[in-house]
Amino acid sequence: MTGAQLENILKKHDYQKSSLLAILQDVQALDNYLPRKTLEAMSQRLQVPLTQIYYLATFYRAFSLTPRGDHLVTVCTGTACHVKGAATILNTLERELAVQPGETTSDKKYTLETVNCLGSCALAPLVVLDGHYHGRMVGTKVLSLLKGDKKDASKKS
């Protein structure tokens, strides 16, 4: 994020401290994470302690303080997906990618995350790969998905 980009976002929100959450959302949307430098600049410009920004950034699930990988794999662990076997899917992915939820593989290719319900419970259990929903998942299907197996027609959402 450049200084000008940050300035634009701040301006859009009228430099209001009460819009901090929305400002962070805009930064996250642009960079896919919250870079430390940007947060420091934000703290300066808005005259808000960095601790307060950090407090917000770590409280809400929507934010990440580390850069994400090229691909985002999200496993729904909502209740409907859980009773239909989301834990097995998540275990498979953790094993295969050798990361825990919230982490990024060392080659920066994949970030693994979990989410609580995507409103597509009828397709449970659900995995989202880069915004494409893949429903009625099983362990073997999720592996072929990672391998880019084209047989699993992807559904954009």
Partner: peptide, 11 residues
Amino acid sequence: GTGCRGAGASE
């Protein structure tokens, strides 16, 4: 809707 989109309604 979101449910049907997940099942391919956009296509």
